[in-house]
């Protein structure tokens, strides 16, 4: 009997909540806050970085588009360059257990060392919670958040949606552009692009 009363209420609650749940971060909106454990074991909370620029980088070490950025040394160069200027760089691993790109904390630490990667932290997101919060579609999708906590860029790392290492040198890097323009007090000319790459390997992903 109880169930027959609660059931419609539950359905109504789900229906009301659904639009809120699927409304992910958009350029111009406040960046949704999250807390995550890094491969180093430390806990990171996005909102504790207010006052700084933050870059979110979706990562999957088996994705050839990610491989293009890391094997060319481009991603590491960006990480070093921007963290040296005070930017907080968070690499996010949203692959579900059993899917491509899923790693344990120690495996990720080994990868960071081997690749000479230098993000502020590599955040483990095996449930895909942060990924869904930002509606991350691909690796390497990139998000830039300004010191006021507003998303100012969301999309591709650059304008060459290929897996060719040879395409890195001539590419226009959208993360660089957004950070440079924002820091110079200019309007972001390209605030959103199609985030090319491999689909994020969420637990429900089939491709």
């Amino acid at each position: 009997m109880k169930r027959s009363i609660l059931f419609p209420i539950t359905i109504a609650l789900i229906l009301c909540a659904a639009p809120l749940l699927i409304a992910a971060a958009k350029v111009g909106d406040a960046a949704p806050d999250f807390t995550a454990t890094a491969s180093s074991g430390k806990t990171y909370r996005l909102s504790s970085n207010l006052g700084k620029y933050v870059v979110l980088e979706w990562h999957n070490n088996g994705c050839p588009y990610v491989g293009k950025q890391y094997n060319s040394g481009n991603m590491q160069r960006l990480q070093k360059e921007w963290t040296a200027k005070g930017v907080v760089w968070l690499t996010i691993l949203s692959s579900a257990p059993g899917k491509q790109g899923y790693v344990t904390a120690s495996e990720e630490n080994g990868y960071l060392e081997k690749m000479h990667a230098a993000p502020t932290a590599a955040l483990l997101d095996p449930t895909g919670e942060i990924g869904h919060l930002y509606d991350a579609k691909t690796s390497p999708q990139m998000v830039v958040i300004n010191p006021q906590g507003i998303v100012i860029y969301d999309g591709a790392i650059d304008d060459k949606p290929t897996t060719d290492l040879a395409d890195v040198p001539g590419a226009t890097n959208y993360v660089n552009l957004a950070l440079e323009e924002a820091m110079a007090g200019k309007k972001i000319e390209t605030p959103a692009t199609r985030p090319y790459g491999c689909s994020v390997k969420y637990s429900d992903s089939a491709h």
Binding site: C63, P64, T162, T163, C198, S199, K201, S205, A206, H207
Partner: peptide, 12 residues
């Protein structure tokens, strides 16, 4: 030809 072939993962 350059082609990306995908299933669970993608192979260029």
């Amino acid at each position: 030809l350059k082609v990306l072939v995908c299933r669970e993962m993608c192979i260029p």
